[in-house]
Design a protein around this nucleic acid. Sequence first.
DNA 1: ACAAAAGTGTTTGTAGTACACCCATGG
DNA 2: CCATGGGTGTACTACAAACACTTTTGT
Lengths: 253, 253
Amino acid sequence: MEQPSEFQSLLEESSRSAWQLYVPHISVDCVVFGFHEASLKVLLLKMKDQELWGLPGGYMKIEEELREAAVRILEERTGAHNIFLQQFGVFSDLNRSEGFFQDFPDTLWMKQRFISVGFYALVDYTKVQPQADNLSSTCAWQDINRLPELMMDHRQIFDEALLTLRRQLNYKPIGYNLLPEEFTMPELQKLYELILGKKLNRGNFYRKMVGYDILEKLDEPRKSGGAYKAPNLYKFHVERYQTALQNGFKEGW
Amino acid sequence: MEQPSEFQSLLEESSRSAWQLYVPHISVDCVVFGFHEASLKVLLLKMKDQELWGLPGGYMKIEEELREAAVRILEERTGAHNIFLQQFGVFSDLNRSEGFFQDFPDTLWMKQRFISVGFYALVDYTKVQPQADNLSSTCAWQDINRLPELMMDHRQIFDEALLTLRRQLNYKPIGYNLLPEEFTMPELQKLYELILGKKLNRGNFYRKMVGYDILEKLDEPRKSGGAYKAPNLYKFHVERYQTALQNGFKEGW
DNA sequence: ACAAAAGTGTTTGTAGTACACCCATGG
DNA sequence: CCATGGGTGTACTACAAACACTTTTGT
């Protein structure tokens, strides 16, 4: 008999309390988007003793609702509060975790069949302190265009999240949640371009954003240590932002 | 001690086999839309011994995926095959079934906490034979504008389904699944108006539909037993329909 | 001078909305 | 003739897309 790996010992330890704490068969996976240095990032965990990365996830406590579980998981992983969360799909393939757990004992909590509910989250990169959990060695931001290989069906979950984010760009408070309090117009445009995966015309974008009447221009431009003209700073006018979102920026028919 | 009601006996009977057959804590609820006599209908079940109605639903078998479970449930309730199914949300409130089952014994399968995944379905009214299940006395179509009181959170589930249907009207094969093989332009327009809850301009609707290039006009008009001019019959050109849907009829940005 | 940012103008094309007109046809 | 259905014309509006010009500002 081989020695169980350290990873397996950890799984077994978490497993013991899990049976009491959580509702079986149901899990939550979160796709956390952040925006930094002109690129769109996702928060990933590198599993201990494994080359694979995974999405932050967890289980639903007996007395919890799904969304509460997602909030709790995200607060543990990011330290941030008031995170924008949106459910986007359920993943129930029979064999979705088969490959990953096949070498581990059947009594593990994690080896049950799980139906996973996907949430995507939008966070202010500057407010997040990525924290690994007890099964992972690292928690880090990764560029969405250069993702490492992901465990189980997490790649599919990520793709679905990004697709949903794209579709909801016109209707949901997306800039508001991904940008710091104060930001510049080029930053906002870059963010939109990254989400949509294509260039947008600057002049048109400017007019459109100003036209929505949800931005407040601040008096002072960014005190740039860099070169060239300092860009104007903006912040969202929260109240008008909320009401604009009620109607949606636009809809069909 | 009171006698257990007939309804309770039935619950207890179903309960016994359920523990072996199904994955606990996970259920499926279906909002089945049909179109008939110029109104939009939903398939509902009237619970035995109860005044309340409920959505057709069920549980996921051990070796089943969620969608397969929904398909099975719908085939049992409607007799129809190849039903268009779309997942639209997860309902996980802690107390979502509390009120309904409070007078029944705690050992009942149904009294567990369930996380319910909502699917909406679009069916050809003429192909459906509503079938009650063993807990319900009636399975019947109800006008969406005159729904009876629904059990648990089924009203909320229905509302969410209708909202999703409305939003997806431009992107998904909605007319195709709700109408019989052959239909007239006024019928198609009426369907759209019912889903959207508002009148549409006839001329514009006609041009738009013809412009999508997914309809085939048939040689013969409807041999109307009624009065006035016989309307033209159309059917969907399945192939062009599918490709048009790939792209979506329209998108933002 | 240069490069980035800001603001505005113009043109073209497409799509939705509203209204109106004419024809066809079955009773 | 009338009510319904079919098909088209047209004008107004909104918006997107592409492009261009100007001005401001920090190094």
